[in-house]
Structures are given as structure tokens and as C-alpha cells.
Nucleic acid binder design. Structure first.
Length: 544
RNA sequence: GCGCCCUUAGCUCAGUUGGAUAGAGCAACUGCCUUCUAAGCAGUGGGUCGGAGGUUCGAAUCCUCCAGGGCGUACCA
């Protein structure tokens, strides 16, 4: 048991005794050292219920708690009624050995044991290479998947795409026109077609293979499918380079083939939620509290994205997931409320669906804002970014900020030198530790059978220990709240505490017992940094 | 007009779910390498937490209104 768990347990015992069990216990970590290691505001909260002076309640709580020196050394009451707990070093040493024992497993938990999660992200239609905008969603999705896995979920990474719509027809026709150019024909290339060089490359591939045999082919199908195949292969390569793979590529088409789409329309019709108007089929969202109705099937007979999206979400629920996550960019914000409303109207539990929206990535070249659009082809691809700054920096940048804040990405800065980048600060701490551990091995300093942990009692050592033991909880909070940046901040702080320790405390010295204790400590730091970076998909180098 | 996100140091952002004197990285300035990696450490300056009300013991955090920025608001996805 950790000190924190012990304190919570004792507070809970107090609440139970007073028939107040339904009050949530929150322990804070005070900023000020003088306020202890953990603080509770329970007395302040209870003042209302008990109609008593909070300081008096705090006093009662203090007297109620068993002061077990294995967990806490001191309790103080301060200010209006804060209860400040000072943990015992004893407990830190116990947990230190736990980290050393558990190694890679430290930080994992079984909160989500036996539960299945599906996380759908990227889901870009294969009309071009993945851009930096997709990159943020990709890295966020993968990292959330890793986090959920860490707390015990069985996770499916899923990519949903639609190769039947207008976008893909335009793609096919773009390739066809470029192909005709290669055949020597003069064509009018529409402005709203895909302008990128990659379209010409694909057309050239076709030309090299077929010559001008297809120059009278007016059906775009061949061109579309060829382009899709080439582009998808490219996307998969980029994803693999980013450090993961999708378990499922879910094609909208199967929903039609298996009649799932018709089924949804039928069910909505039975509920009186669709109506025909102006030759189109409308989804009567106004009946569900929205300001206007939405088209589900266009007058051309082609469904809008809404219909397959509804069917797709119903499918995901039926596939038995306990948690279904969708990750979208901010530009798709409008596309899900009515979809979820429909799923709910059909009688499914939408509470297990969590929609996460990440804000945009704005790219800067120095001061200059770079406007990007796949269609116009003035974009920077994820691959180009990784070429310039590497995978670790790429992932770190996308993860370091909360997803609902806009991300400014200064390319020239990232390109020119990466020393300033905080990812190196964390990796450097890891490399430094590895190098000390290596030296210890070279000098044949064995790990003592029984390390004298109590030699670790300087401010730097204790601060490091106190932060180390926060790791499992940090992972848990990051996973449950879908907030990878918490792990980033945690690791940055850990690295900072380590670097401070490093300048103040010499690890390998003439004092063998102390050296062994400190080697144990830094090994634990190494383990936690490595585990943390692994969750983020960032490498933990041994040399730098 | 309506919906979602944002507004915290010169810049980019955190802020442990409502707590005590609001933090970090860049940038600026000043120190520290003969010893385990200076991609590091220590220090200085820098703030009306966009504004105004409200809720309460207590607000950067919750509510209302206002201002500014972003993204949407399709028979595109």
C-alpha cells in the first residue's frame, strides 16, 4: 500500500464512522513544501454537512487517524482547515523496491481488465498522403490506445474509410486527366481537382504499365482503384513509420453489401424519423432537438456520410466494445452530434461512445503561416516532417499539448536544430542514467543483496522518489481522461528532478553503500522514464 | 445568427477536476565543466489569469453576460 492509499483509507474510515460514505475523497499534492506531501480539504467540505467549524473537524480527523509510521510521519492542520500529511520515507523505499521488481510492468494496472476498447482515428479517405493535420490525430489515437492497453483494456485500432463517394471519383478523374496529358493530349485540368505531384506520379505509373491503351477509357473506375491502392500503401507505410499499425481497416462498402444501410433507413422510418422531400430522404433531426433536418440520401440516390456513419457506429456497438472512441479534427465537429442522436434513437447506449476532437495544427515557417490543403497540394506531408525532425520529435510535438488547444508548429525552428526540443531533455536523462549504470558495471559494483535505501535522504533524492511513485496514477488519469499530455508533463518534471539530483549528488563514489542505494534509485528513474516514453511511442536511447 | 474550442509572463503552453504566495519551456541577462554525458544545473527580471457580474469559507478553474481569435454551420467527408 502506498502512503496515499493509506491516507485515503483512513479518511474513508472516518467518513464511514460518521455515515458520510458518499463523499468523494480527494487528496492534493500541495505546491508548498511546508504543506506536506498530501493535503485534504475534507474538513472544509464537511463543514457544511456537519455545521461545525472546519478547524474543529480537522482536529477530529487528525485525532481519528492512526499515525502509522510506515506510511505517514506527521499530520498538521493549517489555514482554514487544511489537513496536511507528511509521508514517511519508509514508504518511499518500499515503493522504490517495487519499481525495481516490477520493471516494465510498473505503471500498468488492471482497471480495464476484461474490457474491450475500439479506437477509430485517422480515417482519412485515400486521396493523398497523410499531412501534418492527420499526424496529430494519428499520434493522439495511437497513444490513447497505448494508454488504455496499459490499464488493461484490450484495444482495437481502427481506420474507417469511404471509397465510394464523390471525393474518390474526383481523385480517379484527376489521375485520368493527368494520364491523358502523358498520352500527349491537351486537357483542361479543373481547379478543384487534386493538384499534387503525386497524382502525376500515379498517372505515370499507369502510363508506364499500359501505354496509351486507356486513353479512350471514360470510366474512372480503373484510375480510381489504381490510385487508391497506391495511396493506401503509402499511408500504411507512413503509419508504420510513426510506430504502429491498425488492426482493422473498415470499409464503408461492407455496410452496403451486408444490408446494414437499408436496415438503418428502415428502422429510422419505423420511428418516424425520416421523410422524403424534394426527391431526397431527410433525417428529421428537428424531432430530436436539433435546429434543422439533415439529408441522409441525396436526390441522386447517393447517401450522405451520415447514413453509413450511423450504421457503422451501430456495428461497433454490436461488436461488443465497452468503450468506443472516435477521434476527429475540429473541422469535423458538426458531423457527429446527429449521428449519435440517430444511434441513440435506434435504442443503443451511446454513453460508451466518446468523441474526442482535437484542434488544428497551424504550421509556421518562421513567422509565416503556411496554409494547407490536400486539394491544392501545398501541404507538408507527415513523411516530410519525419524526414526533417525524426519520429520522436514528431510524436512529442503532437502530444505535448492538450488536444483542445491549437498547436503551432514552427517548422523552421523544428528543422534547423532540435536541441531546444524538450523531448531531448527527457531522453538525455535516460541516456545519462544508462551511462552511469554502465560505468558501475565496468567498475564491478554489484547490487547489494539488501540495499540501504535509508541512505537516500537528501532533498533531491526524496523529491525524486516522491515523483516516481506518482507514475501509476499519472498513467491512470491520462488513460481515463484520454489526455496523453499528462504523461508528457510528468516525464518532463521527472527528467528535471533527475537532472537536479545529478548535479547535487554523485552516484558512484567511495561510499559503496551509498553508491549502491543511488544506483538503485537511478535505475528506478530509468525504468519509469523508459516505461513512460514507451507509452508515448518515443524511444529511450542509451547514448546521445 | 447558431454550435464547439481557445484567450494565463515578450512568445509557445501547463495548471493534479474548486484550494494555501498562479508554474514551465523558449527568448533576455548573470554565474557553474580537471570528477558518473554542459542536449545539464543555479540565479535575475517578467502577470489586472481577455473584461464585468454571480455562486461560497475559497474561483485561472463552476454559472451568466460581453469582447477578441479559430473551426464548423452542404443534397462534401
Amino acid at each position: 500500500m502506498t502512503s496515499q492509499e493509506y491516507i485515503k483509507k483512513e479518511l474513508q474510515r472516518f467518513l464511514d464512522e460518521h455515515n458520510l460514505s458518499n463523499i468523494e475523497i480527494i487528496l492534493e499534492r500541495p505546491k508548498e513544501e511546508a504543506f506536506g506531501d498530501y493535503a485534504s480539504t475534507l474538513a472544509l467540505q464537511l463543514a457544511r454537512h456537519l455545521k461545525k467549524n472546519p478547524r474543529q473537524i480537522a482536529e477530529e480527523i487528525k485525532n481519528f487517524i492512526t499515525l502509522d509510521n510506515r506510511y505517514i510521519s506527521k499530520i498538521e492542520i493549517a489555514g482554514p482547515g487544511f489537513i496536511n500529511f507528511f509521508t514517511s520515507n519508509e514508504n518511499l523505499y518500499v515503493q522504490l523496491s517495487e519499481i525495481l521488481e516490477k520493471k516494465e510492468a510498473y505503471g500498468k494496472s488492471s482497471l480495464g481488465q476484461g474490457k474491450k476498447a475500439n479506437i477509430e482515428f485517422v480515417s482519412a479517405n485515400p486521396t493523398g498522403p497523410l499531412t501534418i493535420g492527420h499526424g496529430r490525430g494519428a499520434v493522439l489515437g495511437d497513444t490513447i490506445a497505448r494508454l488504455l492497453k496499459n490499464i488493461g483494456y484490450q484495444v482495437t485500432r481502427e481506420y474507417y474509410f469511404n471509397n465510394a463517394g464523390r471525393q474518390m471519383r474526383v481523385l480517379g478523374d484527376s489521375v485520368r486527366l493527368r494520364y491523358l496529358e502523358l498520352c500527349g493530349q491537351k486537357v483542361d485540368f479543373p481547379e478543384d481537382y487534386y493538384q499534387g505531384q503525386y497524382i502525376i506520379d500515379i498517372a505515370r505509373e499507369i502510363y508506364n504499365e499500359k501505354g496509351d491503351a486507356l486513353k479512350d477509357e471514360n470510366d474512372v473506375t480503373y484510375f480510381k482503384e489504381f490510385a487508391e491502392q497506391v495511396i493506401f500503401a503509402d499511408i500504411k507505410k507512413t503509419i508504420r513509420r510513426l510506430g504502429f499499425e491498425f488492426d482493422v481497416f473498415y470499409n464503408e462498402k461492407s455496410l452496403y453489401d451486408e444490408g446494414k444501410i437499408d436496415q438503418v433507413v428502415q428502422q429510422l422510418r419505423e420511428k418516424g424519423l425520416v421523410a422524403e422531400r424534394d426527391g431526397a430522404v431527410w433525417f428529421l433531426t428537428s424531432k430530436l432537438g436539433f435546429d434543422q433536418d439533415r439529408v441522409t440520401i441525396k436526390s441522386t440516390g447517393e447517401p450522405t456520410y451520415r447514413l453509413p456513419d450511423i450504421a457503422y457506429h451501430v456495428e461497433k456497438i454490436k461488436r461488443g466494445f465497452d468503450l468506443i472512441i472516435d477521434i476527429f479534427g475540429a473541422d469535423h465537429i458538426a458531423t457527429y452530434p446527429d449521428v449519435l442522436a440517430a444511434v441513440k434513437a435506434l435504442g443503443y447506449d451511446v454513453n460508451k461512445i466518446k468523441v474526442l476532437i482535437h484542434q488544428f495544427v497551424t504550421l509556421y515557417e518562421g513567422e509565416e503561416k503556411v496554409k494547407m490543403s490536400t486539394r491544392k497540394a501545398n501541404f507538408i506531408t507527415l513523411d516530410e516532417l519525419m524526414d526533417e525532425v525524426g519520429v520522436d520529435v514528431t510524436r512529442y510535438f503532437f502530444l505535448m499539448r492538450s488536444m483542445n488547444s491549437h498547436l503551432n508548429f514552427d517548422l523552421t525552428l523544428a528543422k534547423k536544430q532540435s536541441d531546444e526540443n524538450p523531448v531531448f531533455y527527457i531522453q538525455y536523462a535516460h541516456a545519462r542514467i544508462c551511462s552511469i549504470l554502465k560505468l558501475a558495471t565496468e567498475r564491478e559494483i554489484e547490487r547489494a543483496a539488501k540495499v540501504e535505501f535509508n541512505l537516500l535522504n537528501s532533498k533531491e533524492e526524496l523529491n525524486l522518489l516522491k515523483h516516481l511513485v506518482q507514475f501509476p496514477q499519472t498513467i491512470e488519469m491520462a488513460a481515463l481522461n484520454f489526455e496523453p499530455h499528462r504523461v508528457v508533463n510528468y516525464l518532463f518534471e521527472l527528467a528535471s528532478l533527475f537532472h537536479k539530483f545529478y548535479t547535487e549528488c554523485r552516484v558512484i563514489s567511495d561510499d559503496l553503500a551509498l553508491s549502491q542505494a543511488r544506483l538503485a534509485l537511478i535505475d528506478a528513474v530509468r525504468i519509469v522514464i523508459a516505461n513512460g516514453l514507451k507509452v508515448l511511442g518515443i524511444s529511450a536511447p542509451e547514448h546521445m
